[in-house]
Measured scan of single mutants.
Amino acid sequence: MSRVPSPPPPAEMSSGPVAESWCYTQIKVVKFSYMWTINNFSFCREEMGEVIKSSTFSSGANDKLKWCLRVNPKGLDEESKDYLSLYLLLVSCPKSEVRAKFKFSILNAKGEETKAMESQRAYRFVQGKDWGFKKFIRRDFLLDEANGLLPDDKLTLFCEVSVVQDSVNISGQNTMNMVKVPECRLADELGGLWENSRFTDCCLCVAGQEFQAHKAILAARSPVFSAMFEHEMEESKKNRVEINDVEPEVFKEMMCFIYTGKAPNLDKMADDLLAAADKYALERLKVMCEDALCSNLSVENAAEILILADLHSADQLKTQAVDFINYHASDVLETSGWKSMVVSHPHLVAEAYRSLASAQCPFLGPPRKRLKQS
């Protein structure tokens, strides 16, 4: 649940008159999402009104509101027999009622949201009550392989729920002597030191190019640089560091992050930047690179990204790559990247197969709970 924001200063709310007192009302909304995959969808019983329910879910471990999704594969009634019906059901509720908006969509073979439908307002739910769409999607369109909505005969539904909580009022009075504290510009100011090479005390040599930097900042941000300058190493004695395995453009992006906490060109060089972040123990930059690479996972590059993640101990990226390969196994196994990995990294192939087997055979063990970014 997000923290209630402070109200904007009255002088910034309007260029008009300023009242002596004010009130700011925040209506709290808890948002969460749920993904439900139905394997072997074409084998569902086709009687009209037949119901399939998901397991229950909530916004978190401490949330007492429990929900589930309900599907009628062949419609709810005679009117909707040519459609799939989809509903959000409130299973248990400690209150007399709650209000919530919802959005349903289908994830296609690429994991993209399609055929989205959402409620136009927050509906009133009581325990045992459901709301949804009797005519969510035509069955003939859903079952047509050309539309790519049932890869490997799996129907994957994605649901986003927004639950309306209580409202909170914050009130106060205006004073004539309003003090406005300026925003912190530390990142910009440190970035200026790097860009202008002011007050530098060490030189970093990268592929024949020299960059002036500040030992204190490098040591504070990177345990690797800290070790170089702290001990009686040649880098500490000469205040000069030779860097041979990072390209200059990648190095500059890494230094921008060290000084400012930002990497504006990360998406263009996420793979190389991940390697640099791993070498210099820049954990936050490493996770930022993992996130960017996750966003660009595809059938063509899944094997290469899995190898990269394994090489640099990028655990979150590795998990996402394995899950992606499992979901698109029939396509990924035909790529040149996968065939190369079979020869060069057989242990990763074995890991992917083990994960695929456990996903398809849940009876082999208890269900695993899916539970950071600093």
Results as ranks from 00 to 15, higher is better:
105 S>N: 11
228 M>G: 08
42 S>M: 05
117 M>Y: 09
351 E>C: 09
63 D>C: 10
88 L>H: 01
89 L>C: 11
113 E>P: 12
32 F>P: 07
75 G>E: 03
333 L>W: 11
254 M>S: 04
313 S>L: 07
102 F>K: 00
16 G>M: 02
346 P>H: 05
25 T>D: 00
17 P>Q: 04
168 V>P: 10
362 P>L: 10
53 K>R: 09
201 D>V: 01
366 P>G: 15
371 L>T: 14
295 S>G: 05
192 G>E: 13
148 G>F: 00
149 L>E: 10
6 S>M: 09
346 P>A: 03
214 H>D: 12
314 A>D: 09
83 Y>W: 05
202 C>K: 14
353 Y>Q: 00
300 E>K: 07
179 V>I: 04
304 E>A: 03
333 L>K: 06
286 K>F: 02
18 V>W: 09
179 V>D: 09
272 D>P: 03
347 H>W: 06
369 K>Q: 02
141 F>K: 04
22 W>L: 07
227 A>Y: 15
185 R>D: 07
113 E>G: 08
67 W>N: 00
189 E>L: 11
273 L>M: 02
339 K>S: 10
205 C>Y: 06
304 E>W: 13
234 E>N: 15
185 R>Q: 06
75 G>S: 05
160 E>D: 11
96 S>V: 14
255 M>E: 08
51 V>M: 12
134 K>I: 01
323 D>S: 07
24 Y>Q: 10
230 E>H: 15
341 M>T: 04
289 C>H: 00
58 S>L: 03
224 V>K: 15
362 P>F: 15
146 A>T: 13
343 V>R: 11
184 C>F: 04
292 A>W: 11
46 E>P: 11
127 Q>K: 14
349 V>W: 14
91 V>W: 13
360 Q>R: 13
171 S>T: 02
279 K>N: 02
372 K>M: 05
79 E>P: 13
50 E>K: 02
350 A>P: 03
152 D>V: 13
6 S>L: 02
348 L>W: 00
297 L>Q: 03
275 A>W: 04
314 A>Y: 04
119 S>G: 14
322 V>R: 11
332 V>K: 00
221 R>T: 14
163 V>Q: 06
83 Y>G: 13
51 V>Y: 03
101 K>M: 14
69 L>C: 11
184 C>M: 05
69 L>H: 13
108 N>Y: 03
92 S>R: 06
366 P>T: 14
200 T>Q: 11
311 L>H: 03
123 Y>M: 07
109 A>W: 07
259 Y>I: 01
364 L>Q: 14
78 E>N: 11
200 T>F: 15
345 H>F: 09
167 S>Q: 06
149 L>D: 03
188 D>N: 05
200 T>I: 06
125 F>S: 01
186 L>Q: 08
